[in-house]
Write a protein that binds this DNA or RNA. Sequence first.
DNA 1: TACCACGACTCCTCAGACAAGTAGAGAGGC
DNA 2: GCCTCTCTACTTGTCTGAGGAGTCGTGGTA
Lengths: 222, 222
Amino acid sequence: MEQVKRAPLADQAAELILERIRTGEWELGQKLPGETTLAPQLGVGRSTVREAIRQLAGRGVLASRQGAGVFVTALDAPEEWDAVLRRADLVSVIEARIAIEAEAAALAAERRTPSDLRAIRRALDDRAANRADVEAHVDADTRFHRSIVAAAHNPILAELFDGFTPRMRQAMVDMLRLRGEFGDDADHGAHERLAERIAERDGDGAARESRSHLGAMKAALA
Amino acid sequence: MEQVKRAPLADQAAELILERIRTGEWELGQKLPGETTLAPQLGVGRSTVREAIRQLAGRGVLASRQGAGVFVTALDAPEEWDAVLRRADLVSVIEARIAIEAEAAALAAERRTPSDLRAIRRALDDRAANRADVEAHVDADTRFHRSIVAAAHNPILAELFDGFTPRMRQAMVDMLRLRGEFGDDADHGAHERLAERIAERDGDGAARESRSHLGAMKAALA
DNA sequence: TACCACGACTCCTCAGACAAGTAGAGAGGC
DNA sequence: GCCTCTCTACTTGTCTGAGGAGTCGTGGTA
């Protein structure tokens, strides 16, 4: 699955600069070489270097002062969780989501309160009612899955799920638009069974349902 | 005395764009107008708009795809992940770790390379050799589990595991000091079995071993 | 010594041109 | 009718050249 390294030059340049900061070539507070000397060094144009610098400035690593130069303001921002998600390919994200959600389903089966169960069933009905519009359906689907994660009463799992949501949303919309087959009875049946297992307090069954449903999605998106 | 023009145009443009995102003019996942139409709107040149976009891209708010457009990827900086971890109670962290690690074990069984397997076995031996000192044992144990997650070849899962590590370490040290029973043969046998399942490419078995081992730890810590 | 004008250097901004990639419309084949 | 393929319009990516604006060290002057 050899991904071709098709990253914009500006991104590559930013990475190179960051690398040289990490190795200590330019220390904290120090001035970088001027754009006009840095550009040929990296083998790119001046504007490309500028965009790379802007990018790092947005992350708080660099700061530029007109007339003075560009300075290092931080050795490296702690790898932002958000950036990791964006860079990772979709399959990795789905695998992580499967891990989180299957565990959450099992915990939800143990811990769900009557109020949780009502919320899950309400979300399920809402999901069934939104079959027409693709985006509305994806959002309703997300709310259903979210209600299950919420029933697990584990803030870490909930936070992780919310972190995945934005990255997943667009991918799901694209996929459903492409296939045209969404909201069918088989799909909805799987969700009904998942809700059933949780209602029955069948943790293993809930995890199994969740895993198989998301596994199918992984296959469709890969 | 005029402290007005102090900020570069690109910074001002970035601020304006962020403003319009916050007000909901461009929703999450949506495409921004093209650079060529955005530039006159903001009253700046195209290069300046590009630098503003780069800046926001560095902060994770925007992402641009050549040929397609610029898209909103986040409404603003998300909540600090570390803070969530610190605030959450230990049981929640372990549950999340179980989710991550069981999935990683199953994937590792599928994807492990011979080199991965060597690393896992080396970590296992190292773990066996460090039974005397509590802290050394915990660290060696962590390295073993980390080698399995690495063999799953999923950057998201790896990043999550690393995120849990610091929070787990102290808790495990405390627990082992209290109980005094660590590094015994039964415990080590469980780890050997886990490595075996991965070597045999038995994904379900590996997930089961991982889950039961970590489940025991959860019971001990709770 | 204290002050200041100057110049070299730096980043900032713009404009134009072309390359590279994407996505949708439309033609063609089944 | 449906599928596929091609072609076109549009978008971002990159480079170059030009001039504007701010900073800082230097050297001359009082």
